[in-house]
């Protein structure tokens, strides 16, 4: 066991970890249960967080590897006044979530995508989401929400 401190959403979070403790388990153990675990082979993407600005599957690194890093999770994504940020709002507006379990990972992946590609095409979005599995939405409204969040007109895409 060793004690580590990670800055999560701008606040230091400390705790004892084993060498084998995954970052996702450290976060969830600290009460940040918005980051989810949907598989054990780093395929599903429900645990995507940002580590030092990059999208990372929190099941694919050990907590000790993130010592001292700046980690952003779904809990820190809303605007300072508590309202939904642009991506979150687009997900609600376009029904980009159903059961909500994959949603934190989807939102964090979408944020990383838009940071590196502010106006992605439909194809680029679908390709980027290769590592995020959703079983509910059939992806239609997720892709649409991300296009809308990037300022693109999605009114021509079948809505209902």
């Amino acid at each position: 066991m060793s004690d580590i401190t990670i800055n999560v959403n701008g606040k230091p979070v400390s705790g004892p970890v084993e060498g084998r403790t995954l970052l996702v388990d450290f976060l969830r153990g600290a009460g940040l249960t918005g980051t989810h675990v949907g598989c054990d082979t780093s395929q599903c993407g429900a645990c995507v967080v940002h580590v030092d600005g990059k999208a990372v599957k929190a099941c694919s690194i050990f907590a000790v590897e993130a010592e001292g890093a700046e980690v952003a999770t779904i809990e820190g994504q809303a605007n300072p006044d508590g309202s939904l940020n642009v991506i979150q709002q687009a997900f609600q507006d376009h029904h980009g979530l159903q059961c909500g379990f994959c949603t934190p990972g989807m939102v964090m992946s979408a944020a990383a995508l838009l940071k590196e590609n502010p106006r992605p095409s439909e194809h680029e979005i679908r390709e980027y989401l290769e590592g995020n599995i959703c079983r509910c939405t059939g992806y239609h409204n997720i892709v649409k929400a991300i296009m809308a969040a990037s300022g693109q007109d999605v009114s021509a895409i079948a809505a209902e």
Binding site: H36, D93, C99, F101
Partner: peptide, 21 residues
């Protein structure tokens, strides 16, 4: 009406309460 879903707020902010939570 295509009312927006109220449950989305907690799911989008990481405050849903799933059994593992």
């Amino acid at each position: 009406a295509s009312t927006k879903r109220r449950e989305d707020i907690r799911f989008l902010t990481g405050t849903g309460q799933y059994t593992d939570d």
